[in-house]
Nucleic acid binder design. Sequence first.
DNA 1: CTTGCTGCAAAGTGTTTGCATACAT
DNA 2: ATGTATGCAAACACTTTGCAGCAAG
Lengths: 164, 164
Amino acid sequence: MTEFNLKEKFKRSDFRLTKPRKIIFDILENSEEHLSAEDIYRIAYNIYPAIGLTTVYRTLELLEKMGIVLKHDFGDGRARYEIRETESKRKGHHHHLICKMCHKVIDYKVCMDEEKELVKKTIEGLEKKYGFHITDHVIEFYGYCKDCYSKLENQKKQRRGQVI
Amino acid sequence: MTEFNLKEKFKRSDFRLTKPRKIIFDILENSEEHLSAEDIYRIAYNIYPAIGLTTVYRTLELLEKMGIVLKHDFGDGRARYEIRETESKRKGHHHHLICKMCHKVIDYKVCMDEEKELVKKTIEGLEKKYGFHITDHVIEFYGYCKDCYSKLENQKKQRRGQVI
DNA sequence: CTTGCTGCAAAGTGTTTGCATACAT
DNA sequence: ATGTATGCAAACACTTTGCAGCAAG
């Protein structure tokens, strides 16, 4: 059985359960979003204005090293953090669909057993072949969302118009 | 038939084929690595010391927008660029295996038709469901390479030793 | 009490921008 | 000739570090 409470998990570790950490854990556990350090800082600040952005960065770094949080780069110039599915009651395993223009990210649930099976097989193969110890995988699809795609098409049309 | 020469492709476009661009194209076409802007700048500098790092960034941005180059973040704090397989005689379609500690990246070729089929099916499903126009996908496995993994294990042992 | 954790300010680092000049077409 | 592309320097934005004080265990 997986334990879904970061605070519990932390008490059992050698790290200290401080006020800033408690707040950051709550935010991560209760968010569906991909939060940046700044996002988390702002939310935390409302609860506990004494908190510093540095602490947010340091806590996230710690959580990442502990394998509790995943750090992503979706191309908008800042790292985004997300709690792992095994640590969250809310998030199941999912992949990402990312707009290269507005950087919107859609989580989509993986339902196909076929895919899970294939990923498992791939991991086994890679670990054997390259001697890696694999802990995570990322499957992401990049492109343009509906809105940005039509903007793009309009731009093309306009450019053609100017040339004529 | 795909055209494998960036310079040719560029002549047909509305952009100007300048000396810095020629050099950057050559570097990208002839490299097997995932180069950073700085890497490319250094190689280019040896051929043409008048080149500026800014130009490298701007050229890479342009190539990315044209869909000729892929920009990656492997977690070492700088973007890395790689020519697309359709633009290169050298690189076939591949995915990445990334060490979270030393940031080494292994390219592995995808041979399984099963996987290609699944990816195709997934893309079609996502485009329909979310109205996205998908242009790229990324499949990456993260973990620790053999060396870093044993370093990690040693650290754990030492820490246990200290506690006793 | 001990020492890990915190917040602040400052430094660091990759990347982008403003601008006058050079150059491809 | 004309307008795009360039290189430099400066600006930016996110992230990390040094340090003295605070507080969890």
